[in-house]
Amino acid sequence: MNIRLLFFASLREKLGVSAEDLALPGEVDTVGKLREFLARRGNDWVSITGDVRLRAAVNQRMAEAATPVRDGDEVAFFPPVTGG
């Protein structure tokens, strides 16, 4: 399945990428599994699982580790928000 990945703020700077289209193996079907899948890229990508405060959103709604990831989804990773 194909998904769109987005990264924001300090995580975007650390990874050096703001958006990416990615073909995923079918078994990577939750946010938690996607985090582990991306962390296996090594280097700065390990922070995707290593930083426990990192938040995720699926299709622009806040998500948890168990949130399903499906074909065509937009999945974003970002640090805790600091607006207001």
Partner: peptide
């Protein structure tokens, strides 16, 4: 609204 904006709206300050 402000309390939840602070923790739930995707803004980041640099």
């Amino acid at each position: 609204i402000m309390d939840f904006l602070k923790t739930g709206a995707p803004f980041w300050k640099k």
